[in-house]
């Protein structure tokens, strides 16, 4: 339908003239389609100046119709968009952003739970490690205490034995010394007797005593 005016350039003038004559319009208001053509061929501006063929976008005769139909179509368009389309698209976007926010929130909550689980696990691990250390330490301390006690006991017995041995040695030594005195007296008395033929026992003992010093 709208292709026809584009194709019908040759027939347009006749139609246009028919309109103009039929309509008896005031001068300059309407010289539509038809009369524009002869003037327009390569002389647009000149034509417009002479008013014979008004440049279509500046032709005031078409203004009321265009304004009216623009008001009708744009008004309906505006109402349709405002009442139907825009609330719907806005709703879709809102639902989506709500859903995304909700999902993010859930993800954050789950992450929090996972973090808490990790923290609990780590705490338990740390506790277990602490327990293990404490047990190990106790065992080590116990073993060391036992070893110390054992060592002290062994040392004490050794000490005791050593003391006993030393005492023994001392008594033996003392006894031996005493015996050395008696032997010396006897020997000296014997020597004296064999030399002199008799000896005063007491004098010999005193001499030995003096010699031993």
């Amino acid at each position: 339908m709208f292709v026809t005016p584009g194709y019908a350039q040759e027939t347009a003038p006749a139609e246009g003239e028919a309109h103009t004559q039929g309509g008896t319009r005031p001068e300059g208001e309407a010289h539509p389609v038809g009369e524009a053509h002869p003037a327009l061929e390569g002389h647009t501006e000149q034509g417009a100046e002479h008013g014979g063929g008004v440049f279509p976008p500046f032709d005031p005769s078409s203004f009321p119709s265009q304004i009216l139909w623009l008001a009708i179509t744009f008004g309906l368009f505006y109402l349709f968009l405002k009442k139907v389309v825009l609330p719907r698209i806005g709703g879709i976007l809102e639902v989506r952003s709500d859903r995304i926010a909700q999902d993010l929130e859930q993800a954050a909550r789950m992450k929090g739970e996972a973090d808490a689980a990790v923290a609990a696990y780590e705490q338990e691990l740390a506790e277990a490690k602490g327990n293990a250390n404490a047990i190990g330490q106790k065992a080590r301390d116990g073993a060391r205490a036992d070893a110390d006690a054992e060592r002290k006991r062994v040392e004490a017995t050794l000490e005791e034995k050593l003391a006993a041995a030393e005492a023994n040695i001392a008594s033996i030594k003392a006894k031996a010394m005493n015996e050395v005195g008696t032997i010396a007296e006897d020997t000296a008395a014997e020597i004296v007797r064999s030399l002199v033929g008799g000896a005063d026992k007491a004098a010999v003992a005193a001499a030995v005593k003096a010699a031993r010093g």
């Binding site: 005016p5 347009a12 539509p32 389609v33 053509h37 327009l40 061929e41 279509p56």
Partner: peptide, 14 residues
């Protein structure tokens, strides 16, 4: 005529 660049702006009454 076919090349008239202004023709496309003509208002045609339907």
């Amino acid at each position: 005529m076919a090349n008239d660049p202004i023709h496309q702006f003509q208002i045609a009454k339907l």
